[in-house]
Simulated scan of single mutants.
Amino acid sequence: MPRAGLSTAAVVSAALDVVDEQGVEGLTLAAVASRTGVAAPSLYKHVAGLAELRALVGVRVMVEMTERFTAVVIGRSGDDAVAALLRSYREYVREYPARYAAFPADPLHDPAMVDAGNRMMEVFLGMLRGYGLTDSAAIHATRCARSIAHGFASIEASGGFGLGEDPDETYERLIAMFLASLRS
């Protein structure tokens, strides 16, 4: 019988705590079992194994990010919405760098992640409709936005901006460049 209160969602939450403390490489069934107070075999009542747990962690990260992005773009449009989303993306990575490392590279081609990936994609696509971007133009713009946010935030999280200039200013310049490209 599973420990009272232990569920798949609770296992994933414990896994996220492990990732936050030890990084993605520290995510093991033993570490999650220790955190939840059960023996590792007991986790199999909630997840099929480490691969499924990693997928569920990736989905949870996408859901968290999508919720944040949705919250910051609601009531905004155009440049204001795009800038808010890009800032929110960077802030998530700054707040949860290890957790962000669990973000899947290509969630739209993984059956376990496609729903969460599509929900996130819809936030981006919806935001870009205000620029008249549809179909492949919207996909290209979404890729550009993700590349800007992911690339900058990942480099920043790994300590890659050691020069004296303010990274905030650099990021704002990237946002301005992207916004200019959307308007052209």
Rank of each mutant, 00 (worst) to 15 (best):
M1H: 13
A4M: 06
G5A: 08
T8N: 02
S13F: 04
L16M: 13
D17V: 08
V18G: 10
D20I: 02
D20S: 09
E21T: 14
G23M: 10
V24S: 12
E25L: 10
E25G: 09
E25F: 12
G26P: 13
L29V: 11
L29M: 15
V32E: 04
A33N: 11
S34E: 09
S34C: 07
T36L: 14
G37H: 10
G37R: 14
A40E: 13
P41S: 04
Y44L: 15
Y44F: 15
K45F: 07
L50Y: 05
L50T: 08
A51R: 15
L53D: 11
V57M: 01
V61G: 06
E64A: 02
M65C: 00
M65K: 00
T66M: 01
R68G: 04
F69I: 04
F69V: 01
T70Y: 03
A71L: 08
I74R: 10
R76N: 12
V82Q: 03
V82P: 04
A83N: 02
A84T: 03
A84I: 00
A84D: 07
L85C: 02
R87G: 08
R87W: 02
R87F: 10
Y89L: 06
R90P: 05
Y92T: 02
Y96L: 04
Y100I: 06
A101M: 07
F103H: 11
D106G: 09
D106V: 10
L108E: 12
D110E: 15
A112N: 12
M113S: 12
V114D: 04
V114K: 06
D115H: 08
N118E: 15
N118V: 11
N118Y: 07
N118I: 08
M120C: 12
M121A: 14
M121L: 15
F124T: 07
L125E: 07
G126F: 14
G130H: 06
Y131S: 04
G132M: 11
T134C: 05
A137W: 01
A138L: 05
A138D: 05
T142D: 05
C144M: 12
R146H: 08
I148P: 00
A149K: 03
F152L: 03
F152M: 03
A153W: 07
S154T: 13
I155G: 04
E156M: 10
G159F: 00
G160N: 07
G160M: 05
E165H: 11
E165W: 15
D166W: 14
P167M: 09
E169P: 00
T170R: 12
I175N: 00
F178A: 00
A180V: 02
S184I: 01
